[in-house]
């Protein structure tokens, strides 16, 4: 009985150290990882030109004036040229923290905010057929970045 007790104390100690060490190692790895730059699909900071009365072009995202990081927007989903059988879809992506997000379809406009990690998600309604969706992010320094997405709403079986 006494032997088992001692053995249990020793094993318990070893197990405790092992778990604590493992937890600290995982925590250290996580702090090294940048969640914004990992596993993202497409980053587009410009959109195809369209006719506009002003000579000014806002398609390119200006560099941060302090020269630190470039304001960008990355769309995680949906993929470009996706086809949906439902008119309600959700746009998800990542940009600079707490940026204003403006999503425009040919007929509707939607606005939301990115969270502190820069993530955003917004349900939008698309029209029947092809839809060019423009997603614009404006950060706290008024830098703009845009991405253009083509999605199709079709109930046709194919």
């Amino acid at each position: 009985m006494f032997k088992e007790l001692i053995l249990a104390i020793i094993l318990g100690g070893l197990l405790g150290f092992g778990i604590t060490g493992g937890y600290l190692a995982v925590k250290k790895d996580k702090t090294k990882t940048n969640p914004i730059t990992e596993n993202k699909m497409v980053t587009v900071s410009s959109i195809p030109t369209h006719q506009a009365p002003s000579p000014t072009s806002f398609q390119k995202s200006p560099d941060n004036e302090k020269g630190t990081t470039k304001h960008q927007i990355t769309i995680d989903s949906p993929e470009n040229e996706s086809v949906f059988s439902n008119s309600l879809i959700t746009i998800k992506g990542v940009t600079s923290a707490e940026s204003q997000i403006i999503i425009t379809t040919p007929s509707k406009n939607f606005t939301t905010m990115a969270d502190k990690a820069g993530n955003f998600s917004q349900e939008i309604e698309i029209d029947s057929g092809a839809n060019f969706i423009q997603i614009t992010s404006i950060d706290s320094d008024d830098n703009q970045a845009s991405s253009l997405l083509l999605v199709t709403y079709s109930t046709a079986k194919f």
Binding site: I102, T104, D142, L148
Partner: peptide, 21 residues
């Protein structure tokens, strides 16, 4: 190609501009 739909691209173009100022 499963379905080819002749389209007027003007009707589906997104000609909106977003500006802050």
């Amino acid at each position: 190609g499963k379905r080819i739909v002749i389209t007027d691209t003007k009707s589906i173009a997104n000609n909106k501009t977003v500006v802050i100022g």
